[in-house]
């Protein structure tokens, strides 16, 4: 996977990408959107994959659930990985289902030893099934549980260290959580294991109005905020130039808007490379 700035591949842009072959270093696709055996999206993906590197990003495996891993879900992912040979495969450090019921959302875990052990075991199962490294992503949260065994950043670092997986560092999520839970985001970056970071995500958030405290929602519906760009600069300074993705999932704009955001991220990556040279 090139250490460049790619964009999330979303349905409204597919036909234009097939027609115009824009200069994009790589695309990321939500794994579950390709879980059907066929359809026009697969037809398009075969052609896009022939021309671009690809990353698969899962949202439904529910790594942190006390339910056993859904093996049907896991094997569908394995089949997708075999079919498209993505450069990176990632999931979220969260849970989403219990007792067979799914929220289909990314729900927060308590930062406890019990949760770390569970995640380490589940990540091991996934890596064994896929026979490759899984990246795990830190999520945005709007609540946190009473004091656990770890801070959030130590929790993430411990899971990565003990499972041997890679880390997808979502810089926007770190910023959103730093506002929602009142901490210094640079401290979070410093705690993450630099050698495990394989990818960075950037996205836009919205501010929930009318509340007595500031609360940011990770909506992926807006341009990357200036404060997040600043934190991204710090992340690239610490982790080096790693593949960076612009995510945009709601109110999806024209492709040019995503390309412009990716170009700005590319400038940061290029500057870091020039600095290291």
């Amino acid at each position: 996977m090139p250490a460049s700035a790619g964009i999330g591949l979303r349905a409204p842009h597919v036909s234009r990408i097939l027609r115009e072959h824009p200069r994009v270093p790589w695309f990321e696709m939500h794994s579950e959107n390709l879980f059907a055996t066929g359809g026009s999206l697969h037809d398009a993906m075969v052609r896009i994959r022939a021309d671009y590197p690809l990353s698969l990003h899962g949202v439904g495996l529910s790594l942190g659930s006390v339910d056993a891993l859904d093996t049907a879900h896991l094997w569908r992912l394995a089949a997708l990985v075999a079919r498209y040979q993505p450069g990176l495969v990632s999931e979220h450090l969260c849970w989403g289902a219990v007792g067979g019921r799914h929220s289909n959302d990314l729900l927060p875990l308590p930062f406890t030893e019990e949760a770390v052990s569970l995640l380490v075991s589940r990540i091991g199962q996934v890596q064994d099934a896929l026979r490759r490294e899984l990246l795990v992503e830190n999520i945005s949260t709007y609540l946190r549980f009473q004091e656990g065994d770890y801070t959030e950043w130590d929790f993430v670092a411990e899971v990565v260290r003990r499972s041997g997986c890679g880390l997808l560092c979502d810089v926007n999520n770190i910023y959103v959580n730093s506002v929602n839970h009142d901490f210094d985001p640079s401290m979070y970056l410093r705690a993450l294991p630099r050698e495990a970071v394989r990818e960075i995500h950037l996205a836009g958030y919205t501010r929930k109005e009318g509340l007595p405290v500031p609360l940011l929602i990770d909506t992926h519906s807006r341009p990357v905020d200036e404060a997040v760009w600043a934190l991204y600069g710090a992340a690239v300074a610490r982790f080096g130039p790693v593949p960076t993705l612009i995510e945009w999932d709601q109110d999806i704009p024209e492709l040019e808007v995503l390309l412009a955001e990716a170009a700005r991220a590319q400038e940061v990556l290029d500057a870091r490379r020039a600095c290291a040279a």
Partner: peptide
């Protein structure tokens, strides 16, 4: 309730 991590 939803019974799958795949919304389809």
């Amino acid at each position: 309730p939803s019974r799958s991590g795949n919304l389809q």
